[in-house]
Design a protein around this nucleic acid. Structure first.
Lengths: 169, 169
DNA sequence: TTTGAAACTTAGTGATG
DNA sequence: CATCACTAAGTTTCAAA
Protein backbone atom coordinates (compact mmCIF):
# COMPACT_ATOMS: atom_id res chain seq x y z
CA UNK A 1 0.00 0.00 0.00
CA UNK A 2 1.15 3.50 -0.80
CA UNK A 3 1.94 5.69 2.14
CA UNK A 4 0.01 8.92 2.34
CA UNK A 5 1.70 11.96 3.87
CA UNK A 6 -0.75 13.95 5.96
CA UNK A 7 -0.71 16.98 3.72
CA UNK A 8 0.13 18.09 0.21
CA UNK A 9 -0.01 21.40 -1.58
CA UNK A 10 -1.12 21.55 -5.18
CA UNK A 11 -0.38 24.54 -7.37
CA UNK A 12 -2.02 25.47 -10.64
CA UNK A 13 0.53 23.35 -12.54
CA UNK A 14 -0.56 20.28 -10.61
CA UNK A 15 -4.23 21.03 -11.15
CA UNK A 16 -3.61 21.50 -14.86
CA UNK A 17 -1.86 18.15 -15.03
CA UNK A 18 -4.68 16.45 -13.13
CA UNK A 19 -7.30 17.97 -15.39
CA UNK A 20 -5.60 16.32 -18.35
CA UNK A 21 -4.87 12.98 -16.71
CA UNK A 22 -8.38 12.43 -15.44
CA UNK A 23 -9.58 12.67 -19.02
CA UNK A 24 -6.75 10.82 -20.77
CA UNK A 25 -3.85 9.07 -19.09
CA UNK A 26 -2.22 8.22 -22.40
CA UNK A 27 -1.34 11.86 -23.06
CA UNK A 28 2.47 12.00 -23.42
CA UNK A 29 4.24 13.92 -20.69
CA UNK A 30 5.75 16.09 -23.36
CA UNK A 31 2.28 17.18 -24.55
CA UNK A 32 1.14 17.75 -20.98
CA UNK A 33 4.24 19.85 -20.49
CA UNK A 34 3.39 21.99 -23.48
CA UNK A 35 -0.15 22.48 -22.18
CA UNK A 36 0.90 23.63 -18.73
CA UNK A 37 4.20 25.24 -19.82
CA UNK A 38 6.56 22.82 -18.13
CA UNK A 39 9.20 20.34 -19.30
CA UNK A 40 8.41 16.64 -19.50
CA UNK A 41 10.62 15.66 -16.54
CA UNK A 42 8.97 18.34 -14.40
CA UNK A 43 5.58 16.93 -15.31
CA UNK A 44 6.79 13.46 -14.42
CA UNK A 45 8.09 14.54 -11.03
CA UNK A 46 4.75 16.16 -10.20
CA UNK A 47 2.79 13.12 -11.32
CA UNK A 48 4.93 10.83 -9.19
CA UNK A 49 4.61 13.17 -6.24
CA UNK A 50 0.82 13.17 -6.57
CA UNK A 51 0.75 9.40 -6.91
CA UNK A 52 2.78 9.01 -3.74
CA UNK A 53 0.55 11.50 -1.93
CA UNK A 54 -2.52 9.52 -2.94
CA UNK A 55 -3.99 12.37 -4.98
CA UNK A 56 -3.75 10.13 -8.03
CA UNK A 57 -5.15 6.85 -6.80
CA UNK A 58 -4.90 4.78 -9.94
CA UNK A 59 -4.68 4.72 -13.71
CA UNK A 60 -7.55 2.67 -15.09
CA UNK A 61 -9.30 1.81 -18.33
CA UNK A 62 -12.97 2.73 -18.62
CA UNK A 63 -14.98 -0.12 -20.11
CA UNK A 64 -18.42 0.03 -21.70
CA UNK A 65 -20.42 -2.44 -19.60
CA UNK A 66 -22.95 -3.11 -22.36
CA UNK A 67 -20.21 -4.29 -24.73
CA UNK A 68 -18.94 -6.91 -22.29
CA UNK A 69 -22.37 -8.33 -21.64
CA UNK A 70 -23.06 -6.34 -18.46
CA UNK A 71 -25.80 -4.22 -19.88
CA UNK A 72 -27.87 -3.23 -16.86
CA UNK A 73 -26.90 -0.49 -14.41
CA UNK A 74 -28.96 -0.30 -11.25
CA UNK A 75 -29.11 2.14 -8.47
CA UNK A 76 -30.04 0.83 -5.02
CA UNK A 77 -30.96 2.59 -1.79
CA UNK A 78 -30.54 0.40 1.26
CA UNK A 79 -31.95 1.00 4.72
CA UNK A 80 -30.65 -0.98 7.66
CA UNK A 81 -32.22 -1.79 11.00
CA UNK A 82 -29.33 -1.33 13.38
CA UNK A 83 -26.54 1.19 12.89
CA UNK A 84 -24.07 -0.15 15.42
CA UNK A 85 -20.49 0.19 14.27
CA UNK A 86 -19.84 -3.50 13.80
CA UNK A 87 -23.04 -4.16 11.90
CA UNK A 88 -22.34 -1.22 9.63
CA UNK A 89 -18.81 -2.43 9.01
CA UNK A 90 -20.13 -5.88 8.20
CA UNK A 91 -22.57 -4.42 5.69
CA UNK A 92 -19.84 -2.29 4.14
CA UNK A 93 -17.60 -5.31 3.74
CA UNK A 94 -20.37 -7.40 2.19
CA UNK A 95 -21.38 -4.73 -0.28
CA UNK A 96 -17.83 -3.83 -1.24
CA UNK A 97 -16.89 -7.47 -1.72
CA UNK A 98 -19.50 -8.05 -4.42
CA UNK A 99 -17.97 -7.53 -7.88
CA UNK A 100 -21.36 -6.46 -9.23
CA UNK A 101 -21.25 -3.51 -6.84
CA UNK A 102 -19.37 -0.80 -8.68
CA UNK A 103 -19.84 1.88 -6.06
CA UNK A 104 -21.05 1.95 -2.48
CA UNK A 105 -21.60 5.02 -0.32
CA UNK A 106 -22.65 5.21 3.29
CA UNK A 107 -24.98 8.20 3.44
CA UNK A 108 -27.12 10.37 5.66
CA UNK A 109 -30.80 10.89 4.96
CA UNK A 110 -33.70 8.54 4.42
CA UNK A 111 -31.40 5.75 3.30
CA UNK A 112 -28.21 4.40 4.84
CA UNK A 113 -26.42 3.07 1.79
CA UNK A 114 -26.49 3.88 -1.87
CA UNK A 115 -25.13 1.35 -4.35
CA UNK A 116 -24.39 1.43 -8.06
CA UNK A 117 -24.69 -2.09 -9.43
CA UNK A 118 -23.81 -3.49 -12.85
CA UNK A 119 -25.31 -6.82 -13.92
CA UNK A 120 -25.91 -8.76 -17.14
CA UNK A 121 -29.63 -9.37 -16.51
CA UNK A 122 -32.49 -8.78 -14.11
CA UNK A 123 -32.21 -12.41 -13.12
CA UNK A 124 -28.66 -11.74 -12.02
CA UNK A 125 -29.86 -8.71 -10.09
CA UNK A 126 -32.53 -10.74 -8.37
CA UNK A 127 -29.92 -13.25 -7.39
CA UNK A 128 -27.74 -10.44 -6.06
CA UNK A 129 -30.55 -8.99 -3.96
CA UNK A 130 -31.06 -12.40 -2.41
CA UNK A 131 -27.40 -12.65 -1.59
CA UNK A 132 -26.85 -9.12 -0.30
CA UNK A 133 -30.22 -8.00 1.08
CA UNK A 134 -32.67 -10.81 1.82
CA UNK A 135 -29.91 -12.89 3.35
CA UNK A 136 -28.85 -10.01 5.57
CA UNK A 137 -31.12 -9.76 8.63
CA UNK A 138 -29.94 -6.21 9.23
CA UNK A 139 -31.36 -4.92 5.94
CA UNK A 140 -34.75 -3.34 6.60
CA UNK A 141 -35.65 -2.48 3.02
CA UNK A 142 -34.15 -1.46 -0.29
CA UNK A 143 -35.37 0.48 -3.29
CA UNK A 144 -34.32 -0.28 -6.85
CA UNK A 145 -33.82 2.22 -9.66
CA UNK A 146 -33.00 0.71 -13.02
CA UNK A 147 -30.98 2.99 -15.28
CA UNK A 148 -32.58 3.55 -18.66
CA UNK A 149 -29.86 5.95 -19.76
CA UNK A 150 -26.32 6.47 -18.53
CA UNK A 151 -26.42 10.21 -19.13
CA UNK A 152 -23.03 10.90 -17.63
CA UNK A 153 -20.61 8.40 -16.19
CA UNK A 154 -17.18 8.95 -14.79
CA UNK A 155 -15.09 9.74 -11.76
CA UNK A 156 -13.86 13.11 -12.97
CA UNK A 157 -13.54 15.63 -10.16
CA UNK A 158 -14.29 19.33 -10.72
CA UNK A 159 -10.90 21.04 -10.69
CA UNK A 160 -11.48 24.73 -10.39
CA UNK A 161 -8.17 25.86 -11.78
CA UNK A 162 -9.28 29.38 -10.99
CA UNK A 163 -8.35 29.05 -7.33
CA UNK A 164 -4.63 29.58 -7.17
CA UNK A 165 -3.74 26.51 -5.15
CA UNK A 166 -5.09 24.11 -2.60
CA UNK A 167 -3.56 22.72 0.57
CA UNK A 168 -5.36 19.73 1.98
CA UNK A 169 -4.61 17.48 4.91
CA UNK B 1 -15.15 10.64 -32.40
CA UNK B 2 -14.25 6.99 -32.67
CA UNK B 3 -16.48 4.95 -34.88
CA UNK B 4 -18.19 2.01 -33.27
CA UNK B 5 -18.78 -1.11 -35.33
CA UNK B 6 -22.15 -2.65 -34.51
CA UNK B 7 -20.72 -5.84 -33.10
CA UNK B 8 -17.57 -7.30 -31.61
CA UNK B 9 -16.67 -10.66 -30.21
CA UNK B 10 -14.49 -10.92 -27.14
CA UNK B 11 -12.69 -14.11 -26.26
CA UNK B 12 -11.17 -15.06 -22.94
CA UNK B 13 -7.88 -13.38 -23.90
CA UNK B 14 -9.69 -10.08 -24.35
CA UNK B 15 -11.55 -10.47 -21.07
CA UNK B 16 -8.29 -11.25 -19.30
CA UNK B 17 -6.70 -8.15 -20.75
CA UNK B 18 -9.68 -6.00 -19.75
CA UNK B 19 -9.64 -7.38 -16.23
CA UNK B 20 -6.06 -6.12 -15.86
CA UNK B 21 -6.52 -2.79 -17.63
CA UNK B 22 -9.57 -1.75 -15.65
CA UNK B 23 -7.47 -2.09 -12.51
CA UNK B 24 -4.16 -0.68 -13.79
CA UNK B 25 -3.57 0.81 -17.22
CA UNK B 26 0.13 1.25 -16.55
CA UNK B 27 0.77 -2.48 -16.65
CA UNK B 28 3.32 -3.09 -19.42
CA UNK B 29 1.99 -5.03 -22.39
CA UNK B 30 4.74 -7.54 -21.85
CA UNK B 31 3.47 -8.27 -18.32
CA UNK B 32 -0.12 -8.49 -19.54
CA UNK B 33 1.09 -10.90 -22.18
CA UNK B 34 2.69 -13.13 -19.57
CA UNK B 35 -0.51 -13.11 -17.54
CA UNK B 36 -2.77 -14.14 -20.40
CA UNK B 37 -0.14 -16.19 -22.29
CA UNK B 38 0.24 -13.96 -25.31
CA UNK B 39 3.03 -11.88 -26.81
CA UNK B 40 3.21 -8.12 -26.31
CA UNK B 41 2.26 -7.26 -29.91
CA UNK B 42 -0.75 -9.55 -29.73
CA UNK B 43 -1.87 -7.82 -26.56
CA UNK B 44 -1.43 -4.44 -28.21
CA UNK B 45 -3.46 -5.41 -31.25
CA UNK B 46 -6.31 -6.61 -29.06
CA UNK B 47 -6.24 -3.45 -26.96
CA UNK B 48 -6.38 -1.27 -30.05
CA UNK B 49 -9.18 -3.36 -31.48
CA UNK B 50 -11.19 -2.95 -28.27
CA UNK B 51 -10.51 0.77 -28.22
CA UNK B 52 -11.76 1.13 -31.77
CA UNK B 53 -14.82 -0.96 -30.97
CA UNK B 54 -15.62 1.28 -28.01
CA UNK B 55 -15.21 -1.49 -25.46
CA UNK B 56 -12.38 0.49 -23.92
CA UNK B 57 -13.78 4.00 -23.76
CA UNK B 58 -10.86 5.79 -22.16
CA UNK B 59 -7.75 5.55 -20.05
CA UNK B 60 -8.12 7.85 -17.07
CA UNK B 61 -6.51 8.74 -13.77
CA UNK B 62 -8.60 8.28 -10.64
CA UNK B 63 -8.26 11.28 -8.33
CA UNK B 64 -9.05 11.47 -4.62
CA UNK B 65 -11.61 14.30 -4.47
CA UNK B 66 -10.83 15.13 -0.85
CA UNK B 67 -7.17 15.81 -1.67
CA UNK B 68 -8.05 18.37 -4.31
CA UNK B 69 -10.42 20.27 -2.07
CA UNK B 70 -13.61 18.59 -3.30
CA UNK B 71 -14.36 16.76 -0.11
CA UNK B 72 -18.12 16.25 -0.24
CA UNK B 73 -19.82 13.58 -2.30
CA UNK B 74 -23.59 13.84 -2.57
CA UNK B 75 -26.16 11.60 -3.99
CA UNK B 76 -29.30 13.23 -5.43
CA UNK B 77 -32.63 11.79 -6.55
CA UNK B 78 -34.52 14.09 -8.89
CA UNK B 79 -38.17 13.88 -9.82
CA UNK B 80 -39.47 15.86 -12.78
CA UNK B 81 -42.96 17.06 -13.62
CA UNK B 82 -43.17 16.37 -17.32
CA UNK B 83 -41.43 13.50 -19.07
CA UNK B 84 -41.76 14.64 -22.64
CA UNK B 85 -38.75 13.77 -24.75
CA UNK B 86 -37.54 17.32 -25.24
CA UNK B 87 -37.88 18.28 -21.59
CA UNK B 88 -36.01 15.15 -20.56
CA UNK B 89 -33.27 15.85 -23.05
CA UNK B 90 -32.99 19.38 -21.77
CA UNK B 91 -32.64 18.12 -18.20
CA UNK B 92 -30.05 15.56 -19.27
CA UNK B 93 -28.02 18.23 -21.00
CA UNK B 94 -28.20 20.58 -18.02
CA UNK B 95 -27.17 17.93 -15.52
CA UNK B 96 -24.41 16.52 -17.69
CA UNK B 97 -23.02 19.97 -18.38
CA UNK B 98 -22.38 20.74 -14.72
CA UNK B 99 -18.80 19.83 -13.78
CA UNK B 100 -19.90 19.13 -10.21
CA UNK B 101 -22.10 16.33 -11.54
CA UNK B 102 -19.84 13.32 -11.75
CA UNK B 103 -22.51 10.86 -12.78
CA UNK B 104 -26.08 11.13 -14.01
CA UNK B 105 -28.48 8.28 -14.68
CA UNK B 106 -32.01 8.46 -16.05
CA UNK B 107 -33.88 5.80 -14.11
CA UNK B 108 -37.19 4.05 -13.63
CA UNK B 109 -38.91 3.97 -10.28
CA UNK B 110 -39.90 6.62 -7.79
CA UNK B 111 -37.31 9.04 -9.11
CA UNK B 112 -36.46 10.05 -12.64
CA UNK B 113 -32.80 10.96 -12.30
CA UNK B 114 -30.05 9.95 -9.97
CA UNK B 115 -26.98 12.14 -9.70
CA UNK B 116 -23.61 11.77 -8.02
CA UNK B 117 -22.29 15.20 -7.17
CA UNK B 118 -18.85 16.25 -5.92
CA UNK B 119 -18.48 19.66 -4.27
CA UNK B 120 -16.03 21.46 -1.98
CA UNK B 121 -18.66 22.56 0.55
CA UNK B 122 -22.33 22.50 1.42
CA UNK B 123 -22.52 26.12 0.34
CA UNK B 124 -21.35 25.07 -3.09
CA UNK B 125 -23.98 22.35 -3.11
CA UNK B 126 -26.69 24.80 -2.16
CA UNK B 127 -25.58 27.02 -5.00
CA UNK B 128 -25.70 24.06 -7.35
CA UNK B 129 -29.22 23.10 -6.28
CA UNK B 130 -30.34 26.63 -7.03
CA UNK B 131 -28.79 26.46 -10.47
CA UNK B 132 -29.92 22.98 -11.45
CA UNK B 133 -33.13 22.38 -9.54
CA UNK B 134 -34.85 25.51 -8.23
CA UNK B 135 -34.15 27.30 -11.49
CA UNK B 136 -35.63 24.45 -13.49
CA UNK B 137 -39.44 24.66 -13.55
CA UNK B 138 -39.64 21.02 -14.62
CA UNK B 139 -38.04 19.75 -11.41
CA UNK B 140 -40.78 18.64 -9.04
CA UNK B 141 -38.60 17.69 -6.08
CA UNK B 142 -35.21 16.30 -5.19
CA UNK B 143 -33.82 14.36 -2.28
CA UNK B 144 -30.27 14.74 -0.98
CA UNK B 145 -28.05 12.02 0.47
CA UNK B 146 -24.70 13.20 1.78
CA UNK B 147 -21.98 10.56 1.67
CA UNK B 148 -20.31 9.99 5.02
CA UNK B 149 -18.11 7.21 3.69
CA UNK B 150 -17.03 6.29 0.20
CA UNK B 151 -17.09 2.56 0.89
CA UNK B 152 -16.33 1.55 -2.68
CA UNK B 153 -15.75 3.76 -5.66
CA UNK B 154 -14.90 2.71 -9.15
CA UNK B 155 -16.08 1.91 -12.64
CA UNK B 156 -14.83 -1.65 -12.70
CA UNK B 157 -17.20 -3.95 -14.55
CA UNK B 158 -17.67 -7.55 -13.41
CA UNK B 159 -15.91 -9.66 -16.03
CA UNK B 160 -16.94 -13.23 -15.58
CA UNK B 161 -13.98 -14.78 -17.26
CA UNK B 162 -15.69 -18.12 -16.74
CA UNK B 163 -18.00 -17.63 -19.72
CA UNK B 164 -15.97 -18.59 -22.76
CA UNK B 165 -16.69 -15.53 -24.85
CA UNK B 166 -19.25 -12.82 -25.43
CA UNK B 167 -20.68 -11.38 -28.60
CA UNK B 168 -22.51 -8.11 -28.19
CA UNK B 169 -24.10 -5.79 -30.70
C1' DT C 1 -6.26 -14.65 -39.66
C1' DT C 2 -3.65 -14.26 -36.05
C1' DT C 3 0.55 -15.07 -33.93
C1' DG C 4 5.56 -14.34 -32.27
C1' DA C 5 10.29 -12.54 -33.10
C1' DA C 6 13.12 -8.82 -34.19
C1' DA C 7 13.91 -4.17 -35.66
C1' DC C 8 12.57 0.32 -34.92
C1' DT C 9 10.59 4.47 -32.82
C1' DT C 10 8.94 7.00 -29.15
C1' DA C 11 8.10 7.92 -24.45
C1' DG C 12 9.51 7.52 -19.66
C1' DT C 13 13.42 8.08 -16.43
C1' DG C 14 17.66 9.67 -14.17
C1' DA C 15 21.74 12.60 -13.98
C1' DT C 16 23.72 17.21 -14.48
C1' DG C 17 23.97 22.33 -14.40
C1' DC D 1 13.37 23.52 -13.37
C1' DA D 2 15.42 22.57 -18.09
C1' DT D 3 18.66 20.05 -20.93
C1' DC D 4 20.77 15.99 -22.16
C1' DA D 5 21.73 11.04 -22.09
C1' DC D 6 19.96 6.55 -21.17
C1' DT D 7 16.72 2.93 -20.56
C1' DA D 8 12.51 0.75 -21.34
C1' DA D 9 8.26 0.54 -23.36
C1' DG D 10 5.25 0.93 -27.31
C1' DT D 11 4.92 0.10 -32.31
C1' DT D 12 5.67 -1.74 -36.95
C1' DT D 13 7.27 -5.19 -40.06
C1' DC D 14 7.49 -9.63 -41.56
C1' DA D 15 7.63 -14.55 -41.77
C1' DA D 16 5.29 -18.63 -40.10
C1' DA D 17 1.52 -21.41 -38.24
Amino acid sequence: MARRPPTITLDSFDLGILAILQRDTTTPQRVIGEAVHLSAPAVQRRIRRMEEAGVIQAHVAVIDPALVGQSITIFVEVEVISETADLLDAAKRDFAAAPEVQQCYYVTGEADFVLVVVVPSMAAYESLTRRLFFNNPNVKRFRTFVAMDRVKVGLAVPLDEASGGSTVG
